[in-house]
Structure formats: C-alpha cells, structure tokens
Design a binder for these strands. Structure first.
Lengths: 353, 353
DNA sequence: TTGTACGCGTTATCAC
DNA sequence: GTGATAACGCGTACAA
C-alpha cells in the first residue's frame, strides 16, 4: 500500500525533484534551466532525478510566473470556402511548426468568419494572455491591426511589408519578381493583350501584384486590364467569362492571383470553345501540387511557403526574446512554366482593319 | 506624477477589483463566475468595477488553479503537399472555432511531418499541460493513439468510429452512403466495370470506403478494382495511368477518394485521348469548391465538414466537462452529380468476341 | 463574506 | 561559487 500513490500517480512537480535530491526548489529550477550558480555535480544529480521521476515543466505554472505564454497566435480571416481551397495556410503552418515545436512553443489558431470579429479575436488572445505574439498575414491597405496589436502589447511579425508605419519586423517574399517573370514570359510568346485576375483589392499583396503587373505590361508595351475578385473559384470564373465574352477585345493571356482561379479560368475558356493555350494562355499563382497534374498543366508562380512560415516563426520568437530585428527577405517567387501558356494566337483575320 | 502608473499601466487583477470594491478576492471570484452566495447588489457593484477597470480573466492563472488548460489540440500528420491540397482541415477548423471561441477555449494546432514524431507531439501536449483534450482525425487501423491518449490522461473525441475499443466518444459522418450512391449512379448509367482510387489503406476511412465500394459493386454485379494511394495528386495520376493503360481491360468509370486525385485523373484521361465522361466517367470525393468550376465539372461526394468540426468540438467540450456521451452521427455524405459522370460508352467493337 | 492556503515554477534576497 | 528561503504571478476553493 503505497499510500501517496492511490490510483493515478500524481505528476511530479519541481518540489518532488527537490525533495528527492535533497535540495531546494529554487536550485532545481536553476539546474533545469541551465543557469549558472549550480555545482556541476549537483546539477547532474538533479537532472538525473528529474528524468527518473519523469518530470516535465508545466507550461501553465511557468507561464504564470514568467508572464509569457510560450505560444504564438495565427488568426485566419477568410471565408471557409476560400480558405479551404487555399494551399497557403497549411504549408505556412507546417513551416511555423517546424520552428515552434523544438522551441517548446505552441501555435494557437483562431479562425474568424468576418472582419468584425477579427479585432475581437486579437483582443481576446491578448487579454486572456493566450499568446506572446501573432503572425500578421494578409496585410491590408492601412491595416488597422498594426496599431491594435501594438496597443495590446503583443509582439508580431508581418508577412510582407505594410503600407503604414509598423513597429514589427516584416518577413517578406518578393512576389513581384514572379509577376514580372510571368508578363515577360507571355510577352516573349508574342502576347500583346494580357489581363490580370487579381485578388481582393484591399489586400496589400493583391494590389501590389496588380500594380506590378501593370508596370511590367507598360514596360513591354502591352495592353492590359485588371479585374478584382475575392480569390474564390467562382469569381475567378466570372471574371474570365467577362474577359473573354467579346472575341474582338479579349486578351490572349490571363494571369490569375491563385491557382484555383486559374483552374476555373481554364474551365471557362474550354467551355467557351477556346483552347488553352492555343487561343488563350493562362497562368496561376501558388504553384499548388495540382498545378502540375491538370491538363493542360498550369504555368504558375511558386514561392517557398513552408520556408516563409519557418522564417516568420524564427523572427517572431526573436522579437519576443527582445532582439531588435531587421526586416528580412526570402527567396523571391519564381515562374514555373508548364503547358497552359503558349505562343499568342495569330492575329485575328475576321476583324476588318 | 501618478506614481503607481509609470509607463504602461499594469493590467488589473482580481485583487485590484477587490480592493476597489472593498471586498475580498474570493468574493470577486465568486461574483465574476456567477456563483451563488453573493449579495445581488454587491455582485453588481463588483461587475461594474471589473468592467470599469477593464479586468479580464488571465487564462494562465485560471489554468494553474483549476488544472485545466481551456484549450483543445489538433495534431495534423500529413505530408505538406497533401495537406495543402486538402480542403478538410481548414473547413473542420472553421467549425471547431465556431464552438470554441464563444466557449472561451482556444485551439492549439500541431503539425507533424512524420509518423514517428506524432506520438511525441501528443505526449508533449499532455506533459506541458497545453490542452485538455484532442481531436483524433484520420483514424488508422488498430490506432495506437487511442491507448496513448488515454494513458496520457487527455480527453478526446474521434472523427469516425475506431476499429478497436475506444474510451472516447466518436462523432461520425457516414460516407458509406456517398460511396454507395456513387456506385449506384454509375451503375444506372450503364457502367459495368468501375475502379476505385482509394486513399492510404491504413487509414480507416479509406479502407472502409474501399470495402463499401466493393460491396456496392458486388450488389450491382459490377466488375471492380481498388488501387491504393497516399491521397496525393501524383499518385492519383499514376493510378489512373495504370488503370487506363490497357484499353481492353480499362474500367469505364473511376471513383477517387478525394477531388484532387479526381482532377488529376481527368487530366490523365484527357491526355490519353479519352473524353470525360464520354469514354471515362470520373467521380471525386469532398466536393471542394473547385469541383463545380472545372471542365467538365466534377461529380463528387459532399459532407458538411464545418458542421462536423462544430459537432466534434461540442462533444469534446462536453466530455471534458465530465458528461457521459454517446457516439453521434451527422448527416450522411451525399452525391452531387455534375458533368464528369455520364453514360457508359458503348461496348467496344474493336475487340473480336 | 473573509482570510488564506494552494497550484507550480521563477527569481530576488541572503547566508555560508 | 553554492545553496536556502521566501515572495510572486493570479485566480480558485475551503475553513472559519
């Protein structure tokens, strides 16, 4: 009858280790945290006993005393349908986890359906002290979250550069290069009229890609158009229908802001009797796995999202640790040419000059 | 010089509220938690002061004293590439969050690349006391996680029924109905040889769908084949290539275990000169948004994944609260017929009988 | 209603 | 340099 161990054994605390080692709680803490001031032999003994007892730190207790949560937050604000088709977040999260897990940090994920509840979610994460910092994705024009997060006393890292003053380090992937490469690729193929099916215009990366697209077209002397969408396949399809409706004015190539819309665009074109890339070249963005497995396979712009997540996590952890950090830039996006883009069709003969 | 408020104001604690209200900490706690034994007027006054001071509970402190984390865990174990194309988790998470957020609970997400690190992740979540319970998705044959989770003292809910004894409630969606409906639909269209491109055979839902497929085919007297994959577009494409390689023996219809593989399958078929659905009918599974926007649009099996997430969250919260729960069953999967399935091609004349 | 111990690890203060 | 002691963080719970 081992009195103190009735039923399930109580998990060992630092006090148990201390008692067993015949030292004080404080010393055990010092030993376990690799801090100076502990005799080497004593430290070894303490560590051995901790291991033997199966002790492991209780984040709750540690959190309370250190005033840190050892967790980072990511708030997703997208329609369910859109986020479901978006390969970004799963990959980003995988990269984040690769860094957080060894660092003993956890990822707290919140998913909000509407803009309104987004600020509340950050406020709640902060007031409940759930997280030490947050990842700011999908930056918007004049993003109010920057001030909010700062006023909440949270650390943060932005994915990309905000268009307003920011107190937080930015980790960016230059996707402009990918846009330019796409336009150049199409221009080299003889296209003289290209459309861009962009994402939501309040999204900074969408508007920047749109602007880069226009600049690139102008540099090459190419007629261009931009259509805004909400990133959904549905709106990608609608935009495509509108663009190709008038055979006389339709572009010979369309670049989309994501692969899902590009796939929908291919479908609309084919349904309208256009061959891709014979009559219409199509380029995506994301280079999702499916891009290389559709027919025609999809030319798309690739970025290393996993690495982006990892870099963002490292930066945020460093910021929380108090390091002053410069913005960092990852490998730029690059174009992966496949079958959906090809030579521009010969000028139409059916339009009398 | 407001001495006690130099720089950033310290966040108010329950002690501040107590002092301001001229009562004890304990009474404030009772008032804030809506527990009986507090004079109505006093309670009102305490709540007013708490609001005025901007007090909000600190989960860390609450966690330490209640021995609860107020957080639930979800461990994703899939290749980055595969999870990126999978619409399940974003939708599932959206549903989970819909329940957790109002309940003051957080979702802790872990993402592990390999099987080996999966058990460690659960162990860590438990030993650090990060979460009170976990969602068990992607059940496997003889899933070792059930025993592990139980031994770790965590609560859990399984997504679907395990094939071994389980201490946890299951929340399931019957996808068998969807499989049967698919086979019946194809049989009604005259198909007499159907293949199933299944997911990983150790995944319970994959093997169960496979078995259901075979039973449904046998019931209708239809020749059938099952090919296992890892759920990736690549293997979906490979499986399709193998299936259609021999024109004499190829099936006239293929059902896939997810939409991504089905899209890859359509591409392989078209590339091989087969028309879909003219020569080959194709059905997917998941009914992702893109399914209705490709050409031909994809017949697929739909389930309400958001609702599944919400139900699983409710069940897990109830289990943590100590309720004894029965397994629950959500609305079954149903087939959404689109263009990628059609009448079986006429029997080949080029094969001399 | 109050007072106070408690949960568990961290850290500042002291003593040898 | 080694180590002990005690206070602290914040909310909960129980005896008084």
């Amino acid at each position: 009858m081992d009195e103190s161990h009735v039923g399930r054994t109580r998990r060992p605390t630092i006090a148990d280790v201390a008692q067993r080692a015949g030292v004080s709680k404080g010393l055990v803490s010092f030993a376990l945290n690799d801090r100076p001031g502990v005799n080497v032999a004593t430290r070894r003994r303490i560590l051995a006993i901790a291991a033997e007892l199966g002790w492991s730190p209780d984040v709750r207790a540690r959190s309370l005393s250190t005033n840190r949560s050892f967790a980072l937050g990511l708030v997703l604000q997208r329609d369910t349908e859109i986020v479901a088709g978006d390969p970004f977040f799963p990959a980003f999260i995988a990269g984040v986890e690769r860094e957080l897990s060894p660092a003993g940090q956890a990822l707290v994920l919140a998913s909000v359906p509407s803009h309104g509840r987004e600020a509340d979610t950050y406020r709640k994460l902060a007031s409940e002290r759930r997280v030490d910092g947050v990842f700011l994705a999908d930056l918007r024009a004049g993003d109010e979250r920057l001030d909010l997060i700062e006023s909440l006393g949270l650390a943060a890292v932005t994915l990309g550069h905000p268009d307003v003053a920011s107190a937080f380090p930015a980790v960016s992937v230059d996707d402009i290069d990918g846009v330019i490469a796409t336009v150049d690729h199409l221009a080299d193929l003889g296209h003289r009229s290209i459309a861009h099916v962009a994402g939501s215009p309040e999204m900074l990366h969408a508007s920047r890609r749109g602007a880069a697209f226009e600049r690139a077209c102008e540099r090459r002397g190419i007629a261009h158009r931009v259509v805004d969408t909400d990133f959904s396949a549905r709106q990608g399809a609608e935009a495509t229908r509108a663009l190709i409706a008038d055979a006389a004015t339709r572009p010979t190539a369309i670049c989309y802001s994501n692969d899902v819309m590009a796939l929908a665009g291919i479908a609309v074109a084919q349904r309208g009797g256009l061959s891709v890339p014979g009559d219409l070249s199509i380029a995506g963005f994301d280079d999702s796995e499916i891009a290389r497995h559709v027919y025609p396979s999809l030319t798309s712009v690739a970025t290393d999202v996993v690495e982006w997540g990892a870099a963002a996590a490292r930066t945020l952890l460093a910021a929380i640790a108090g390091d002053e950090l410069d913005d960092s830039e990852l490998a730029p996006a690059h174009l992966v040419v496949r079958e959906s883009t090809g030579a521009a069709p010969a000028p139409r003969r059916d339009t009398p000059s």
